[in-house]
Nucleic acid binder design. Structure first.
Lengths: 112, 112
DNA sequence: GGCACCTGCTAGATTTCTTTTGCATGTGCT
DNA sequence: AGCACATGCAAAAGAAATCTAGCAGGTGCC
């Protein structure tokens, strides 16, 4: 997945989503191996409820994806894995994305 | 400036700083031309006080830098300009940075 | 049945971020 | 002196993100 072509809103969402220690750790953990909620929660040392909240945001931003699988012993488990993304951030890229953010820039040329 | 070699904390700060529409616009505006506070505020259509707050955060994250200059007519003006940064974000990079974030990862191998 | 796992949700308390408002200081020009 | 424009800071209000605690449902095994 190439996050380069993102609308301002999209970029903003990705940044906001990544700007959190827990979510950063989640991405890091999933980068190593896919995992299911409960196990991942234990592994990270946080509550399942909290992890779910963060996973929802990560999924909403398109950074991770989930798949439901039934284990041999019949338990339904939700596996998460990272979306292979690549974000190249530079002032120029931001300048581009900013155009598709919101107005406010219309007057730019006006202020002298 | 290469933001690739950032400590987890540093990466987190950069992300949190960029995750805001106003600050994104500021970076975008400064990417085009350096500018001084009052003029930039007018250009973006926001109050000077608000802009100052955002500029402080951007500066704290090392994304912009300021220089005080005295104009011909004696007015002291504070010019800001973007730091030419380059951030390449991928799950792997995050996995790396996450190690220098905080503990919590010590048990990773333990949970089975 | 009772226990160990798996999943899901949300109301409410907290904390943190964002924005406004108001006051202060300084220079130059009329 | 009065006005225009530059800077700076901070308290208080408002808005948003975060985390906890509690409840819900399901399967398999002893």
């Amino acid at each position: 997945m190439d996050v380069d072509d993102l609308t301002g809103q999209g970029l903003l969402q990705v940044l906001a989503t990544l700007a959190n220690p827990h979510r950063l750790r989640v991405v890091a953990a999933l980068a190593g191996e896919r995992n299911y909620v409960s196990r991942l929660a234990r592994s990270l040392g946080i509550s399942r409820a909290l992890l779910q909240v963060h996973l929802r945001k990560l999924e909403a931003a398109g950074l991770v994806s989930a798949t439901i699988e039934v284990s041999e012993d019949g338990k339904a488990m939700k596996f998460y894995e990272v979306t292979p993304f690549a974000l190249h951030l530079t002032p120029e890229v931001i300048a581009d994305a900013a155009r598709t953010l919101g107005p406010e820039s219309e007057l730019e040329a006006g202020a002298r």
